[in-house]
Every structure is written in C-alpha cells, then in structure tokens.
Design a protein around this nucleic acid. Structure first.
Lengths: 225, 225
DNA sequence: GCGATCCCTGAGCCCTCGCTGAACTACAGG
DNA sequence: CCTGTAGTTCAGCGAGGGCTCAGGGATCGC
C-alpha cells in the first residue's frame, strides 16, 4: 500500500511518514500542492492524505484537479478543527473522507484502510437538488454549506425523495421504499417525517423544497426550493 | 431504498439484514426461492440480493422467472467462490452483478448502491398538444412557458384528455377513467371540471383547446387550440 | 319561431386531506 | 435508574377541493 502525504508543515509531515510507515504503508511526502499534484499524476497511489492549507495551490484545488483528470484515488483531507465549511467544500471537490486536526494516527490509519479497501473504483456520488446535497456513502446531508444532522428515517426519506427529485411520489410509495414490510401503520407517518425534514432542511433556510401535491403525494423541487 | 434478501442460511440472512439496515436500506428477507419470488412480485424493491443455492427453487430460476415476467429490478447474485460457471449462468438469466462468498459488507453495499443508481434510468415522458404540456412524473402542466397549477381532479382529467387528444370522448367514458368506480353522481360533474380546465388553460391565453361536441362529448385539439 | 334538449355557470355545502402538537413506547448511554 | 433521543400513534383543526344543484344560455329538430 502506497500513500502520498501532501503537507507543508515539516514536523507533521515527517510524523505522518514515520507513523504510516510503522503501519506498513510505503509513504511519499510532498511539501506543496503543485508537487503533490505532480507526484499523484506520476505514480498510482492507493490513497492520498491531503492538507487543505498549502502554499501555492490549496488542497481543494489539488483534489478538484485530480478528479477532473479522472484520477479517483481515495483522498483523506486534513481539516482544521474549527472549519465547518471544510467538509462541504471538500465533498464538492471530490474528497472521500476527512480527519480533523488534531487527530490520532489510529483514526487516520483506520480511515485510510477503509478507503483503500473500498478502492478507487467506487467514486463518491452525491445526490443533490440545488444546494440541497446528500452523500449516500457517509449518509450526511447539507443545505448549502451547513451540514444538517438527520436521524436514520429522515435520512432514508430524504434519499428516496432525492432519487426521485422532480417526480411526485405518493405516500404509499414512500412507505414501500422507506419503511420495511413489517410496518403496518397508517400513511400519516409520512406526513410526520416530511414535517421533520421541512423543519430541518427548509424552514431554517427559508426554503420550500418539499412540496405537497394534494391528493397525489410529495415532490422534491429539482432546484432544491 | 428497499432491498429484498433471498437467502436460506439464517445466520447470513440476519447478518445481511442488520448490516443493510445499518446502511439505511429497508430490508426484507425471504428464506426460499418461492417466497422470494412471491415477495418480489408483490412489492417494488429497489434491488434484490439473491443467493444461488436455495431450497426448492434455485436463484437462477428465481431470477429468470422475474425477468420473464418483465420485472427488471436490479439483482445482485451471491456466488460461491469456486463457481466459475455461476456468473455465466447468472448473466444468462438476467442478473446484474455478482458478489463472491465470502464477501465484505462494504463490497456488497457498494455494488448495491451502484446498481440502484444505474437502475433509476427511466425518465418520464411528456404529454403535449401544441404548447399545452403535461409531465406525468411531476404532475405539472404548462401552457407555453407558464406553469398552471391544477387540482388533483383537474390534473387527472387533463391527462386523460391529452392521452386521447384529437378523439371525441364521452362524458361517461371520462367518468369511467377519471373518477373511481364508486362514483355515482351525474354527468354534470364532467362539465364542471371541463370548465375549470378551460378557465385555467384556455381563457387566460385566448385559446380554445377543449371543444365540446354536442351530444357526443369533448375533444382536445391536437394542436392545443 | 318554438319547445326540447343539451350544456354552461355560479354559488354553496360538506368532507377529505394534510398539518400539527402532544403523548407514548422503546431503547441507548451515562 | 434516570435522561435523552428516535420512532410511532393519535386526535383536533383548518383550508381547500370535490361535488351538487338550480337557473340561465345555446343549439337542434320541427
């Protein structure tokens, strides 16, 4: 397993190198975004650890550039602990996972192994409607740049609505796909969960993405409201 | 997202259920091929995980039967590690992907997601007559560029008229198709709703798309008026 | 021209549908 | 054991939509 670390801070970079090599990863280090991009293009890495704050070319741009070139090597981004925007932007540019500084090697290595196992083939796909976004892999949702925390059911409902964005889906259809067959309650449960989603994804942002089509069902606006 | 697991080995089946539900899939389990077939016919699944070795009716036959019946739900087959013929036969019978036992959940889930993403291929067609348009998927209607909001009944009536554009359809025929069989009111209701449609789709635009054919019924002009 | 038939129109009643808040259960963590 | 969270149920409410009806036009046959 060969890993590329793109990190300008020398202490951290060398720490990572020794730590990762102790874990059995062959590790290369790049000190700038440009260098890192170059190295990533030259050799097939199994994963890339990418800092965001880099001299010259920042991590987002490195990541986006690689993805544009069709390079889907798994990328773990190192984000600052206060950076709430980091992850949203990281996902936009095609990062696969995130580790918040300061971090433990254990966490980083675990993520790396998971990503490598998943492989470069399964690129991250994102479901979106306007600025409403959902990552099926990590099962997280964003309205614009702010992440919104959803429960399991809410997540499942949102995912279903997003996959059928623009279409009217009936409540019974929703129950068929979001609840399992053991469920024998009424259709009202759908109304309740639609309400939950609206309260979390629409109301705080002054949006109106989930429209009710009286007598037919609900429709998620393709432009996200 | 709703998945059907057809697997006779109880341990594996329950493991799959919990694993998949943790990933956000609503999961149903069938223990025999017959049961699985039955369940697949009953409800719309987003994907099916199908073991090959099943009591009674094996996975190939389940798969082939579903395909024969026009059911194209994505199917992932679980194949034994030594079975070289498995995949060929699976492909013949209409399987979409294969996972070799023993497998990791990560791999299975990745395949499932990929299939579901691919599977949602068909897009709604649009009904139109001149510049009068209707999208059955989103159940929205337009006259030219401006969207017109319709109630459920109005929508159903418009859809019916559009599907029979150019033909004369009688009021009783309309009642048969747009109202449910329990309806026992008079034919006047059709007149009322035709009026509603005219008020929304014709009058504001100076059009005359719904023509009344005295003594016979109504006809929607194929050119939209 | 005249009645008969068919269709249009507007007003109004009633009830379904969807929304909402609250209560209840189950379960996990501290 | 207590607390908090998620999932579900339920009953009340309010608005909007579905439907009815009666009277006024329009059109046809004679």
């Amino acid at each position: 397993m060969r890993v590329l670390v793109i990190e300008d801070e020398v202490g951290l970079a060398e720490g990572l190198r020794t730590g990762l090599e102790a874990e059995g990863f062959a590790t290369d280090v790049a000190r700038t975004g440009i260098d890192g991009l170059w190295m990533a293009r030259e050799r097939p890495y199994d994963a890339i650890v990418l800092d965001i704050l880099l001299p010259g070319m920042n991590g987002y741009r490195v990541c986006a550039t690689l993805r544009d070139e069709g390079n889907w090597t798994p990328i773990v981004m190192l984000t600052a602990k206060d950076g709430e925007f980091d992850e949203a932007e990281g996902l936009d540019t095609g990062a696969d996972d995130f580790v918040t500084k300061p971090f433990s090697y254990v966490a980083l290595v675990a993520r790396l192994r998971a990503l490598i196992r998943r492989g470069a083939g399964e690129r991250p796909v994102e479901l979106s409607a306007g600025d409403l976004r959902f990552d099926p892999g990590s099962r997280r949702a964003w309205r614009g740049k702010t992440e919104v925390s959803l429960t399991a059911r809410e997540t499942a409902l949102l995912e279903f609505l997003l996959r059928r964005a623009g279409e009217v889906v009936s409540k019974s259809e929703i129950i068929d796909h979001v609840w399992d067959e053991a469920f024998d309650g009424g259709l009202n449960i759908v109304e309740v969960y639609v309400r939950h989603l609206r309260n979390k994804l629409d109301r705080p942002f002054g949006r109106d993405s989930i429209q009710t089509v009286r007598g037919a069902g609900y429709r998620l606006a393709v432009d996200g409201g």
